[in-house]
């Protein structure tokens, strides 16, 4: 469960995110969309406790990310657009390190099926430098999933993946959502978001333009037309800005 209320982030005179409020329930997948510079990544980074919000509150699984960050972070996983890995740790050593940080008991039993699911079991003793970008991303995801987070934030999770990788990533996200995880993801690939997201939130210049279920947002911007794509909704909502 994610509850965001009046969240703003300012850098000096520049407001990156302004008065953002929304809620995402268990099993829901919220797609965060907006033109370049809309504040998607900044919002995700505030929600994940990476950067402090200037004002507003954000509760992750019932814990305030500002006042109780350790409990909130224990319940979440953040997946950046570029996999951030330690170049000197092998795949297996990454999982051992993350297990110790999160206190995941008997992590080997959890790690093995995860590596098999993500198809990197045969790379377990390799360093990130020996992995392709897609493999690195899978390793970052394995590290994030090891502690079975209730809340997940994906920043452009499909970047750099091949078609099969994109399909697997979508399946993986949906599997976690069906298992009750709360998921927020940002992406420019709107047609793919349509397949994964139950809800959508459109940002422009740091402000929320619209949010709700895909059907709600479609209804608001479809002008009575049927079968309007998310891409068309996006263009109408943002006034035709590029994605």
């Amino acid at each position: 469960m994610i509850e965001v209320s009046g969240l703003s982030k300012r850098y000096g005179n520049f407001t990156a995110v302004h008065d953002l409020s929304f809620t995402v329930g268990p099993g829901e997948v919220l797609g965060l969309v907006g033109p370049n510079g809309a504040g998607k990544t900044t919002s995700l980074r505030c929600l994940a406790g990476i950067i402090p919000a200037t004002t507003g509150t954000c509760r992750i699984a019932g814990h305030d990310i500002t006042t109780d960050p350790v409990a909130a972070k224990r319940a979440l996983a953040f997946f950046p657009d570029e996999p951030r890995l330690f170049e000197y740790l092998t795949v297996r050593q990454h999982l051992a390190f993350v297990a110790r940080i999160y206190g995941v008991e008997d992590h080997e039993a959890l790690a093995e099926p995860l590596l098999v699911e993500l198809e990197i079991a045969d790379k377990a003793d390799q360093l990130p430098g020996e992995l392709s970008r897609g493999m690195k991303q899978k390793l970052a995801i394995a590290c994030g999933l090891l502690h079975s987070p209730q809340v997940m934030f994906f920043d452009e999770p499909l970047t750099g993946l091949d078609p099969l990788g994109i399909r697997r990533m979508k399946d993986s996200i949906l599997k976690r959502a069906h298992a009750g995880a709360t998921i927020v993801l940002s992406s420019h690939l709107l047609h793919l978001l349509e397949e994964v997201c139950s809800h959508v939130l459109i940002l422009k210049q740091g402000e929320k333009i619209a949010d709700g279920t895909l059907a709600d947002v479609s209804a608001r911007f479809s002008n009575g037309e049927a079968n309007v794509s998310l891409e068309e909704i996006f263009l109408r909502a943002t006034g035709g800005s590029d994605t």
Partner: peptide, 22 residues
């Protein structure tokens, strides 16, 4: 280490248990 050239995987300096001081 990466800047010096190709790195090789190495065993950990000691056994890291799953639980304990992070």
């Amino acid at each position: 280490r990466a800047a010096r050239g190709a790195m090789k995987a190495r065993p950990g300096p000691f056994r890291l248990a799953s639980t304990g001081r992070p």
